[in-house]
Nucleic acid binder design. Structure first.
Length: 330
DNA sequence: AATCTACTCAACCGCAACACC
DNA sequence: TGGTGTTGCGGTTGAGTAGAT
């Protein structure tokens, strides 16, 4: 006893749809509607599975669909909703007229995840990587923290080198502060402008090993400082064979590494104010709000309706061109 | 010019939820 | 109430393509 297949596998065509098939399906649905997808391919004269027809219709042929690039505003909505709802693409797509869950999912996986990662934000939790590392560090003993810093640096080094070699950014390190200047308009080939980040310091030459060492120390300190913000010059981890002072001026990592202090991305400010990301709180608030207002109601449409009430803030534009973003650490 | 690599996105698959009997 | 068929959803795959080497 197995599951009944949705169609006769042998006689069913797979793969790309031809214009002729599209036309057959469209004209059949225009006449008869979309009731009973199992019968539609048979009646429309298509050698396709009903499921495949439904997918083709909902993701491509539906006349109300919007094709083409996602706007900044749409991206903002996706990111904001994803921070609260997670991978519930259908609910997110319901807030974007003309977009399908498949569109949203693809756009997230191919573009938005990378953008967030490039900004130092974990696309899963929507928290800065620095906070995640700090959270992990709270569960570790000092030697393990050092290992974590080491491992993290391995990733950061690769990402930075990748960025440097790919984009030829003039990067020089100042010990231990790395300054990233606000974006300067850069004229693109098509005549438009995009912000260009410039990272500079007082040192002229990159000494990779030296820099890595400095970052390593800074990262260890930052992790510990994040763990206990009240400790500034206290001796930490005493009794564990390691003593690290907490005070560490000027070094920022994660999100702050990519935006000039005080001039961070408007998006990042709205999502992660100051040093405390609010995404988790938003999720908790949203959840409790849903439960309070609707009991155990779980109907997708109702949920989607109430999700729209979350948009009380103006949508901010992305401030980083996707080309300048690094590959995700995820 | 040929090959390789990375990226995009349409389509597929399996599972869960829902509807109906 | 349980069984069966249908629909919807999210994860994943792979063909096509653009850019790099």
């Amino acid at each position: 006893m197995g599951r009944i297949p949705c169609c006769e596998k042998e006689s069913v065509k797979k793969g790309q749809w031809t214009p002729e098939e599209d036309h057959k399906l469209s004209s059949y649905i225009a006449q008869h509607g979309t009731r009973n997808w199992r019968l539609i391919p048979k009646n429309a004269g298509l050698q396709r599975c009903g499921k495949s027809c439904r997918l083709r219709w909902t993701n491509y042929l539906r006349p109300d669909l919007k094709h083409g690039q996602f706007s900044d505003a749409e991206e903002q909505i996706i990111v904001r909703l994803h921070s609260v709802l997670g991978n519930r693409w259908s609910v997110i797509a319901a807030q974007l007229p003309g977009r399908t869950d498949n569109d949203v999912k693809n756009h997230w996986n191919t573009k938005l995840k990378k953008k967030l990662s490039g900004m130092g934000i974990d696309p899963v939790t929507h928290k800065p990587y620095s906070h995640l590392m700090a959270e992990i560090a709270t569960t570790l003993a000092p030697p393990q923290v050092a290992n974590l810093a080491e491992a993290t640096l391995g990733c950061l080094k690769d990402e930075m080198l990748h960025l440097l070699t790919k984009k030829h950014i003039d990067i020089q390190f100042q010990s231990p502060v790395v300054q990233v200047h606000p974006p300067q308009p850069m004229i693109n080939n098509n005549g438009t402008t995009s912000p260009s980040y410039n990272i500079t310091s007082r040192h002229e030459v990159i000494n990779e090993d030296d820099t890595i060492e400095k970052i390593k120390i800074g990262l260890s300190r930052a992790i510990i400082q994040d763990h206990d913000p009240n400790t500034s010059s206290n001796k930490l981890w005493e009794g564990h064979g390691a003593t690290i002072s907490g005070n560490f001026p000027g070094f920022h990592y994660g999100l702050s590494s990519f935006v000039h202090e005080g001039e961070g991305s408007p998006w990042s400010q709205s999502m992660c104010t100051g040093s405390t990301c609010t995404a988790g709180d938003q999720q908790a608030q949203f959840h409790s709000k849903m439960v309070d207002e609707h009991g155990d109601e779980s109907d997708g449409d109702k949920e989607a309706r109430h999700v729209s009430s979350m948009f009380t803030q103006d949508c901010d534009l992305w401030d980083l061109p996707s080309n300048d973003l690094m590959n995700p650490l995820v």
